[in-house]
Simulated assay, not measured.
Amino acid sequence: MPKTTAHSPRPRSRPRPRALFAGALAGAVALVGLAGALPASAAQPGAPSFSSVSAPSSGSGPSGSAPSSSGRPGPVTASVAVPTDFRDCPALPAGVDPAAWRCEVHAAAPRLSMGGLAVTLAPITMTHAEGPLPDGTPGQVWGAMHSTATPVPGGLTGTARAGLTPLTGLSLQPEYGGRSDFYTGRFSLRFRLVSPLLPRSCVIGADAPVDFALKRPSPSEWLSTDPPVIRFSAYDDTFAAPAAGHCGPLTRILGRRLGLPAPSGNLMSYDAIYTFRTYDTLPVR
Protein backbone atom coordinates (compact mmCIF):
# COMPACT_ATOMS: atom_id res chain seq x y z
CA MET A 1 0.00 0.00 0.00
CA PRO A 2 1.48 3.43 -0.92
CA LYS A 3 2.67 5.52 2.00
CA THR A 4 1.05 8.86 2.82
CA THR A 5 2.93 11.74 4.31
CA ALA A 6 1.94 13.76 7.32
CA HIS A 7 1.69 16.82 5.09
CA SER A 8 -0.73 15.33 2.53
CA PRO A 9 -2.90 12.75 4.26
CA ARG A 10 -5.05 10.62 1.92
CA PRO A 11 -8.74 10.95 2.73
CA ARG A 12 -10.66 7.78 3.36
CA SER A 13 -13.04 6.86 0.57
CA ARG A 14 -16.64 6.17 1.46
CA PRO A 15 -17.90 2.64 1.00
CA ARG A 16 -19.77 2.17 -2.26
CA PRO A 17 -23.52 1.46 -2.04
CA ARG A 18 -23.11 -2.03 -3.52
CA ALA A 19 -20.36 -2.80 -1.01
CA LEU A 20 -22.64 -1.63 1.78
CA PHE A 21 -25.43 -3.86 0.50
CA ALA A 22 -23.13 -6.84 0.12
CA GLY A 23 -21.90 -6.39 3.68
CA ALA A 24 -25.41 -6.02 5.02
CA LEU A 25 -26.51 -9.07 3.06
CA ALA A 26 -23.65 -11.12 4.46
CA GLY A 27 -24.57 -10.01 7.97
CA ALA A 28 -28.21 -10.87 7.44
CA VAL A 29 -27.32 -14.29 6.04
CA ALA A 30 -25.14 -15.00 9.04
CA LEU A 31 -27.91 -13.82 11.34
CA VAL A 32 -30.44 -16.27 9.96
CA GLY A 33 -27.99 -19.13 9.58
CA LEU A 34 -27.49 -18.90 5.80
CA ALA A 35 -30.10 -20.13 3.37
CA GLY A 36 -31.20 -23.06 5.46
CA ALA A 37 -33.02 -20.78 7.88
CA LEU A 38 -35.14 -19.17 5.16
CA PRO A 39 -37.55 -21.08 2.91
CA ALA A 40 -36.49 -21.11 -0.74
CA SER A 41 -38.97 -19.50 -3.11
CA ALA A 42 -40.15 -21.35 -6.20
CA ALA A 43 -41.39 -19.66 -9.33
CA GLN A 44 -45.03 -20.51 -9.85
CA PRO A 45 -47.47 -19.36 -12.47
CA GLY A 46 -49.55 -16.44 -11.33
CA ALA A 47 -53.31 -16.40 -11.16
CA PRO A 48 -55.23 -13.90 -13.30
CA SER A 49 -53.37 -10.83 -14.46
CA PHE A 50 -53.31 -7.67 -16.17
CA SER A 51 -55.45 -6.12 -18.76
CA SER A 52 -54.98 -4.26 -21.91
CA VAL A 53 -57.08 -2.59 -24.52
CA SER A 54 -60.04 -3.97 -26.47
CA ALA A 55 -59.64 -4.82 -30.14
CA PRO A 56 -60.39 -2.36 -32.93
CA SER A 57 -63.79 -2.79 -34.48
CA SER A 58 -62.80 -3.55 -38.06
CA GLY A 59 -60.28 -3.06 -40.81
CA SER A 60 -56.57 -2.52 -40.50
CA GLY A 61 -54.71 0.48 -39.20
CA PRO A 62 -51.18 1.80 -39.15
CA SER A 63 -48.56 -0.01 -37.19
CA GLY A 64 -48.63 0.64 -33.46
CA SER A 65 -45.67 1.85 -31.49
CA ALA A 66 -44.20 1.34 -28.06
CA PRO A 67 -42.65 4.05 -25.93
CA SER A 68 -38.93 4.26 -25.47
CA SER A 69 -37.33 4.51 -22.04
CA SER A 70 -38.18 8.20 -22.15
CA GLY A 71 -41.88 7.40 -22.56
CA ARG A 72 -41.95 8.58 -26.17
CA PRO A 73 -43.27 6.28 -28.89
CA GLY A 74 -40.79 4.05 -30.68
CA PRO A 75 -41.14 1.32 -33.32
CA VAL A 76 -43.08 -1.86 -32.65
CA THR A 77 -41.16 -5.11 -32.64
CA ALA A 78 -42.67 -8.56 -33.03
CA SER A 79 -41.52 -10.09 -29.75
CA VAL A 80 -44.26 -12.58 -28.88
CA ALA A 81 -45.87 -15.46 -30.75
CA VAL A 82 -49.52 -15.44 -31.76
CA PRO A 83 -51.49 -17.13 -28.95
CA THR A 84 -53.60 -20.14 -29.93
CA ASP A 85 -54.72 -21.69 -26.63
CA PHE A 86 -58.33 -21.01 -25.60
CA ARG A 87 -58.44 -23.41 -22.65
CA ASP A 88 -58.58 -20.57 -20.11
CA CYS A 89 -61.73 -18.97 -21.55
CA PRO A 90 -63.97 -18.25 -18.52
CA ALA A 91 -67.63 -19.21 -18.10
CA LEU A 92 -70.04 -16.53 -19.31
CA PRO A 93 -72.51 -14.61 -17.15
CA ALA A 94 -76.04 -15.98 -17.13
CA GLY A 95 -78.39 -14.75 -19.82
CA VAL A 96 -75.84 -13.41 -22.34
CA ASP A 97 -75.62 -14.27 -26.04
CA PRO A 98 -72.55 -16.50 -26.70
CA ALA A 99 -72.33 -15.24 -30.29
CA ALA A 100 -71.96 -11.66 -29.01
CA TRP A 101 -69.23 -12.53 -26.52
CA ARG A 102 -65.67 -13.27 -27.44
CA CYS A 103 -62.77 -14.90 -25.63
CA GLU A 104 -59.56 -12.93 -26.12
CA VAL A 105 -56.12 -14.45 -25.63
CA HIS A 106 -53.41 -11.86 -25.27
CA ALA A 107 -49.61 -12.26 -25.19
CA ALA A 108 -47.32 -9.39 -24.19
CA ALA A 109 -43.60 -8.79 -23.85
CA PRO A 110 -43.41 -6.24 -21.01
CA ARG A 111 -40.44 -4.00 -20.36
CA LEU A 112 -40.33 -2.74 -16.80
CA SER A 113 -38.34 0.11 -15.31
CA MET A 114 -39.24 0.49 -11.64
CA GLY A 115 -37.03 2.08 -9.02
CA GLY A 116 -33.60 0.56 -9.58
CA LEU A 117 -35.01 -2.36 -11.60
CA ALA A 118 -34.81 -2.48 -15.39
CA VAL A 119 -35.81 -5.81 -16.94
CA THR A 120 -37.57 -7.26 -19.94
CA LEU A 121 -40.04 -9.68 -18.41
CA ALA A 122 -40.69 -13.13 -19.81
CA PRO A 123 -43.80 -13.14 -22.05
CA ILE A 124 -47.13 -12.94 -20.24
CA THR A 125 -50.27 -14.60 -21.61
CA MET A 126 -53.71 -13.46 -20.46
CA THR A 127 -57.23 -14.65 -21.24
CA HIS A 128 -60.52 -12.86 -20.65
CA ALA A 129 -64.05 -12.62 -22.10
CA GLU A 130 -66.00 -9.53 -23.04
CA GLY A 131 -69.37 -8.68 -24.53
CA PRO A 132 -72.77 -7.11 -23.81
CA LEU A 133 -74.62 -7.96 -20.61
CA PRO A 134 -78.38 -8.66 -20.75
CA ASP A 135 -79.10 -4.98 -20.02
CA GLY A 136 -76.84 -3.90 -22.92
CA THR A 137 -73.96 -2.56 -20.82
CA PRO A 138 -70.42 -3.79 -21.54
CA GLY A 139 -69.31 -6.79 -19.50
CA GLN A 140 -66.06 -8.64 -18.99
CA VAL A 141 -64.93 -11.77 -17.16
CA TRP A 142 -61.39 -12.58 -16.11
CA GLY A 143 -59.85 -15.86 -17.29
CA ALA A 144 -56.20 -16.52 -16.41
CA MET A 145 -52.61 -15.31 -16.61
CA HIS A 146 -49.45 -17.32 -17.20
CA SER A 147 -45.82 -16.21 -17.02
CA THR A 148 -42.42 -17.33 -15.81
CA ALA A 149 -39.86 -15.68 -13.55
CA THR A 150 -37.28 -13.33 -15.06
CA PRO A 151 -33.71 -13.17 -13.64
CA VAL A 152 -32.76 -9.76 -12.25
CA PRO A 153 -29.29 -8.69 -13.44
CA GLY A 154 -26.84 -8.56 -10.56
CA GLY A 155 -28.98 -10.71 -8.26
CA LEU A 156 -29.51 -9.78 -4.64
CA THR A 157 -26.22 -7.89 -4.29
CA GLY A 158 -26.29 -6.06 -7.61
CA THR A 159 -22.94 -7.65 -8.51
CA ALA A 160 -23.77 -11.38 -8.66
CA ARG A 161 -22.91 -13.11 -11.94
CA ALA A 162 -25.69 -15.14 -13.53
CA GLY A 163 -25.37 -18.86 -12.87
CA LEU A 164 -22.19 -18.57 -10.82
CA THR A 165 -23.67 -17.50 -7.48
CA PRO A 166 -27.06 -19.24 -7.19
CA LEU A 167 -27.38 -18.41 -3.49
CA THR A 168 -27.57 -14.69 -4.24
CA GLY A 169 -29.60 -15.03 -7.44
CA LEU A 170 -32.83 -13.04 -7.77
CA SER A 171 -35.78 -13.35 -10.15
CA LEU A 172 -38.99 -11.39 -10.65
CA GLN A 173 -42.32 -13.23 -11.01
CA PRO A 174 -45.34 -11.12 -12.08
CA GLU A 175 -48.69 -12.14 -10.60
CA TYR A 176 -52.23 -10.85 -10.93
CA GLY A 177 -53.02 -8.05 -8.49
CA GLY A 178 -56.78 -8.62 -8.39
CA ARG A 179 -57.94 -5.65 -10.47
CA SER A 180 -58.45 -5.35 -14.24
CA ASP A 181 -60.55 -3.42 -16.73
CA PHE A 182 -59.94 -4.44 -20.32
CA TYR A 183 -62.00 -1.56 -21.67
CA THR A 184 -59.89 1.15 -20.06
CA GLY A 185 -56.49 -0.53 -19.84
CA ARG A 186 -56.38 -0.47 -16.05
CA PHE A 187 -54.94 -3.43 -14.21
CA SER A 188 -52.81 -4.35 -11.23
CA LEU A 189 -49.85 -6.66 -10.67
CA ARG A 190 -47.73 -7.90 -7.83
CA PHE A 191 -44.11 -8.94 -8.38
CA ARG A 192 -42.87 -11.88 -6.36
CA LEU A 193 -39.13 -11.81 -5.62
CA VAL A 194 -37.69 -15.30 -6.01
CA SER A 195 -34.38 -16.25 -4.35
CA PRO A 196 -33.02 -19.02 -2.10
CA LEU A 197 -32.47 -16.34 0.56
CA LEU A 198 -35.99 -14.93 0.45
CA PRO A 199 -39.24 -16.34 1.85
CA ARG A 200 -42.12 -17.11 -0.48
CA SER A 201 -43.99 -14.13 0.98
CA CYS A 202 -41.48 -11.59 -0.42
CA VAL A 203 -43.44 -9.48 -2.91
CA ILE A 204 -43.30 -5.99 -4.43
CA GLY A 205 -46.82 -4.75 -3.77
CA ALA A 206 -47.52 -7.34 -1.05
CA ASP A 207 -49.99 -5.13 0.83
CA ALA A 208 -51.26 -3.05 -2.12
CA PRO A 209 -50.57 -4.07 -5.75
CA VAL A 210 -48.90 -1.97 -8.43
CA ASP A 211 -51.70 -0.21 -10.35
CA PHE A 212 -51.23 0.51 -14.05
CA ALA A 213 -53.25 2.74 -16.40
CA LEU A 214 -52.14 1.82 -19.90
CA LYS A 215 -52.10 4.29 -22.78
CA ARG A 216 -51.71 3.44 -26.46
CA PRO A 217 -49.50 5.84 -28.44
CA SER A 218 -50.93 4.73 -31.80
CA PRO A 219 -53.71 2.61 -33.37
CA SER A 220 -53.71 -1.17 -33.42
CA GLU A 221 -52.57 -3.12 -36.45
CA TRP A 222 -54.58 -6.03 -37.84
CA LEU A 223 -52.13 -8.67 -39.03
CA SER A 224 -54.82 -11.15 -40.08
CA THR A 225 -58.61 -11.36 -40.21
CA ASP A 226 -58.91 -15.16 -40.46
CA PRO A 227 -57.94 -15.99 -37.82
CA PRO A 228 -58.13 -12.52 -36.24
CA VAL A 229 -54.68 -11.38 -35.12
CA ILE A 230 -54.15 -7.86 -33.81
CA ARG A 231 -50.97 -6.17 -32.62
CA PHE A 232 -50.65 -3.07 -30.45
CA SER A 233 -48.34 -1.31 -28.03
CA ALA A 234 -49.13 0.34 -24.71
CA TYR A 235 -47.36 1.96 -21.80
CA ASP A 236 -47.73 3.63 -18.43
CA ASP A 237 -45.21 6.13 -17.10
CA THR A 238 -47.30 7.46 -14.21
CA PHE A 239 -47.57 4.54 -11.78
CA ALA A 240 -46.04 4.45 -8.31
CA ALA A 241 -43.91 1.45 -7.36
CA PRO A 242 -44.27 0.25 -3.74
CA ALA A 243 -41.57 -1.31 -1.61
CA ALA A 244 -40.96 -5.03 -1.34
CA GLY A 245 -42.66 -6.46 1.73
CA HIS A 246 -42.64 -9.59 3.88
CA CYS A 247 -39.07 -10.43 2.85
CA GLY A 248 -37.79 -11.42 6.29
CA PRO A 249 -34.48 -10.04 7.60
CA LEU A 250 -33.55 -8.76 4.13
CA THR A 251 -36.63 -6.55 3.67
CA ARG A 252 -34.98 -3.22 4.40
CA ILE A 253 -31.70 -3.78 2.56
CA LEU A 254 -33.60 -5.30 -0.39
CA GLY A 255 -35.53 -2.03 -0.66
CA ARG A 256 -32.23 -0.14 -0.92
CA ARG A 257 -30.90 -2.60 -3.50
CA LEU A 258 -34.01 -2.22 -5.71
CA GLY A 259 -34.53 1.51 -5.17
CA LEU A 260 -38.05 0.96 -3.81
CA PRO A 261 -40.47 2.50 -3.05
CA ALA A 262 -40.34 4.76 -6.12
CA PRO A 263 -43.34 7.12 -6.32
CA SER A 264 -42.39 8.39 -9.80
CA GLY A 265 -39.96 7.90 -12.66
CA ASN A 266 -41.23 4.40 -13.50
CA LEU A 267 -42.21 2.93 -16.88
CA MET A 268 -44.08 -0.17 -18.05
CA SER A 269 -44.13 -0.64 -21.82
CA TYR A 270 -44.71 -3.62 -24.03
CA ASP A 271 -45.59 -4.93 -27.44
CA ALA A 272 -48.65 -7.16 -27.46
CA ILE A 273 -50.51 -9.42 -29.84
CA TYR A 274 -53.88 -11.10 -29.44
CA THR A 275 -56.54 -13.18 -31.07
CA PHE A 276 -60.15 -14.00 -30.21
CA ARG A 277 -63.04 -16.36 -30.89
CA THR A 278 -66.72 -15.86 -30.20
CA TYR A 279 -68.19 -18.25 -27.67
CA ASP A 280 -70.49 -19.89 -30.18
CA THR A 281 -67.40 -21.13 -32.08
CA LEU A 282 -65.51 -22.50 -29.06
CA PRO A 283 -65.45 -26.26 -28.45
CA VAL A 284 -68.10 -27.47 -25.99
CA ARG A 285 -66.54 -28.28 -22.61
Results as ranks from 00 to 15, higher is better:
183 Y>I: 03
119 V>S: 04
71 G>S: 07
22 A>N: 06
127 T>S: 10
258 L>P: 00
128 H>F: 14
179 R>Y: 15
161 R>H: 12
194 V>R: 01
3 K>N: 12
108 A>S: 11
276 F>D: 03
126 M>L: 15
282 L>A: 08
52 S>F: 12
268 M>H: 12
173 Q>T: 04
223 L>K: 11
198 L>A: 05
207 D>C: 07
137 T>I: 08
285 R>G: 09
79 S>R: 13
191 F>Q: 02
17 P>V: 02
49 S>P: 12
57 S>V: 10
8 S>K: 13
100 A>F: 01
82 V>D: 10
138 P>Y: 05
243 A>S: 05
264 S>R: 12
59 G>R: 10
268 M>K: 14
173 Q>M: 14
92 L>H: 02
200 R>S: 13
196 P>V: 00
26 A>C: 11
274 Y>A: 07
177 G>E: 04
199 P>H: 04
65 S>E: 11
272 A>M: 09
36 G>D: 00
177 G>S: 05
7 H>D: 13
281 T>N: 13
283 P>T: 07
176 Y>E: 15
276 F>R: 10
17 P>E: 00
173 Q>Y: 03
18 R>P: 06
144 A>L: 14
21 F>K: 11
43 A>P: 01
270 Y>W: 13
41 S>Q: 08
184 T>W: 09
171 S>N: 03
82 V>Y: 08
238 T>F: 04
90 P>G: 00
197 L>S: 00
47 A>L: 15
235 Y>T: 03
105 V>M: 04
105 V>E: 01
237 D>I: 06
175 E>K: 13
24 A>P: 05
238 T>M: 03
202 C>K: 01
51 S>W: 03
20 L>V: 15
157 T>F: 02
212 F>Y: 06
95 G>H: 09
114 M>I: 00
42 A>R: 15
47 A>C: 14
199 P>Y: 03
147 S>G: 14
239 F>D: 00
183 Y>L: 15
32 V>K: 07
150 T>V: 05
178 G>H: 02
268 M>S: 13
174 P>A: 09
85 D>A: 08
106 H>C: 10
201 S>H: 09
32 V>Y: 01
229 V>A: 05
138 P>K: 13
126 M>A: 15
223 L>C: 04
125 T>G: 10
115 G>H: 01
182 F>N: 11
245 G>Y: 03
75 P>H: 12
58 S>G: 11
271 D>M: 07
39 P>C: 02
1 M>T: 10
225 T>F: 11
270 Y>Q: 13
60 S>D: 04
241 A>C: 07
234 A>E: 07
99 A>E: 05
70 S>I: 06
12 R>C: 06
29 V>R: 11
141 V>S: 05
53 V>F: 14
80 V>A: 06
6 A>R: 12
14 R>W: 10
106 H>K: 12
194 V>S: 01
64 G>Y: 11
18 R>N: 13
118 A>T: 03
188 S>I: 01
187 F>W: 06
115 G>E: 00
159 T>S: 15
263 P>W: 00
154 G>R: 04
86 F>A: 06
125 T>A: 09
226 D>H: 15
86 F>T: 07
